[in-house]
Design a protein around this nucleic acid. Structure first.
Lengths: 211, 211
DNA sequence: GCCTGTGAATCCATTCACAGCT
DNA sequence: AGCTGTGAATGGATTCACAGGC
């Protein structure tokens, strides 16, 4: 029974996590999984799996388990991953270029439909076949025309805040930021920051605590 | 006073976070910052900043604040970021290549000293000038010789677990995994998983809840 | 009998509020 | 007077334990 209770942010992250092994199980032809089986695959507690899912509905069958295909479909709906999302990349250095080439994005429905760079040497070329690189000044227009919903920032940190402002001005309300600064954004927009060095520092710290 | 209390994982992540604006303040010549000032820059509660830091020592001066340079140095020590870490990359596709070229890593002391790929067409070439690509079979030897401490996996998901096993066999105890599967690792080793599509799904979910 | 769904209990993290030092 | 450091209070998230349904 879907409650109006506050859903923990951690729950959303885990729901994403659950989808990965479910995809593999589906491909392998496994049709049923228990909360314990899924928990093992995701290194979490079985009760956690059940509680997380119960925030959104009753997807399992008591005494039986969860139907793999159905559960995956439900999770996709919960995460709005059952449709195509239109992304713009800003900054086509090493990271930006690698991102638009990630087939992992495309496979999950995250489609880069526009690319921008401030370097005149890059403008006019193609980031990947069919994805032309535009100057920043065309951003506003293209966001409208191409129906872009998510902006991905892969510029040097010094430009990142400026780019974020431009994206928000153009009407974009979701930003995935790969540059290692914290972006200041207005109410009603959402930002996810991805900083690899934070992960590395975490690894280093945890490494020193094991054993 | 450094306690033997269990330190929340979230605290470690925030400590990383605090370092970023401190670097900028230091460069700009600001020498003092209060917990409130730092909290504003990192979008957290001032008491959180003080409590996080207090797990590791007393770095501030009552009535005054924190000395920017000293605090940054302390944070670097806490995170073992005050030294060079030797990394190996495995998988030199788009993402792997982008990672070794990230100057952000190098600047923070995370240095790629070896590169591996299973594609014979890539072996023998250079991922970046001075970083030769080796076949996987040389991994064990090179890990020892080059003193590699962290393995970075940027292979297709189908190979990721196998690579992780090889890395662990070679004596590596810290893995940063960019492939979208959950890696199973033995006791005494640490893994950080970075999955961009999890961030995107999170964005999509949160976007639907704002306003 | 078996496994889900969930209130209650526990555990952990954040914030408050003030004592302690400069 | 001002700002840190921290025990106590609050607020969340996780886990337990069992009722509910196949």
């Amino acid at each position: 029974m879907p409650k109006k209770t506050k859903i923990p942010n951690a729950t959303i992250e885990r729901i994403s996590l659950y989808a990965r092994p479910l995809e593999i199980l589906l491909r392998e032809g496994t049709s049923l999984i228990s909360s314990e089986g899924l928990a093992d695959l995701c290194r979490v507690n079985p009760a956690q799996v059940r509680k997380d899912l119960s925030y959104f509905g009753e997807f399992g069958v008591r005494g039986v388990g969860y139907a793999v295909g159905d559960l995956l479909e439900e999770i996709r709906k919960i995460l709005f991953a059952d449709r195509v999302w239109r992304l713009a990349i800003v900054g086509l250095g090493n990271m930006g270029t690698a991102l638009v080439r990630q087939e992992n994005f495309a496979r999950r429905g995250y489609r880069f439909v526009a690319a921008f760079d401030s370097d005149p040497g890059k403008v006019g070329g193609e980031a990947i076949p069919g994805l032309r690189v535009h100057p920043l000044k065309d951003l506003q227009t293209l966001v409208q025309e191409a129906g872009i919903e998510v902006g991905v920032i892969a510029t040097p940190p010094s430009q990142a805040q400026n780019i974020a402002d431009i994206l928000v001005d153009a009407g974009i309300r979701a930003i995935l930021n790969f540059s290692p600064i914290l972006i200041r954004q207005p109410q009603g927009t959402v930002v996810e920051n991805v900083d690899f060095t934070v992960s590395l520092e975490n690894l280093a710290y945890r490494l020193s605590k094991v054993d």
